[in-house]
Nucleic acid binder design. Structure first.
Lengths: 99, 99
DNA sequence: TGATCATATTGACAATGATCTATATGAAGT
DNA sequence: ACTTCATATAGATCATTGTCAATATGATCA
């Protein structure tokens, strides 16, 4: 996973409602109108957010009749978790090389 | 750590250069002019990015003479890692409650 | 004190994004 | 066929953001 992909995912999660959506989906897949009940936004706005989350492969959409079911994309999420897990702080001091 | 704080951190990481900066800081603290060498941006832009990273408490600034040294804020990073680690996918299907 | 260096701030601009209303699409039921 | 329902798309608006050139700040050194 490239830095570009990482930052794209982070950008997607840089909006509160989208973090809430992802958090909700950790409980299993949900249809749009169910998600809508837990968020204070209109239906088109939710649709927009789902598109953003799809475009960075954080979620998968499954169509069933007139309902769209959304769920987390395990593969992307696993890679992303791995990257974030690798960001550990390091207290070592490195001399500034600017003369 | 609230959803609002999480999304603020993600928004900060939603920019490629800032992900690179955080990644660089996992190697230990660095001064601005050293970071600048690894990025294709001007000094004011770097300064702006460092401010954004500071404002969500991802980094700590230490002033030493004319140099500013930046390092990762372990506490914030640990909490953030914890949140992301808790986002696991769940393949269970939940019926849509929309009639 | 005057020059130089590292970093921060200001101000401007173009691009992006979150949100809404209105409308389209497409499936299901009558 | 017509209506209804769930979701998507279009278009508009307002706020935010990444970037740079110019300038300010504040430390160090001659």
């Amino acid at each position: 996973m490239t830095i570009s992909e990482i930052s794209k995912i982070c950008k997607a999660l840089g909006e509160e409602n989208r973090v809430k959506i992802v958090k909700l989906l950790t409980g299993g897949e949900r249809c749009a109108c169910d998600l809508l009940k837990d968020l204070n936004i209109t239906q088109p706005t939710l649709s927009h957010h789902m598109k953003v989350l799809s475009e960075c492969d954080l979620i998968i959409t499954r169509r069933e009749g007139k309902w769209s079911y959304y769920s987390l994309d395990c593969e992307t999420l696993t890679e992303f978790r791995g990257f974030i897990a690798g960001l550990d702080c390091n207290k070592s001091r490195r001399r500034c090389s600017c003369r």
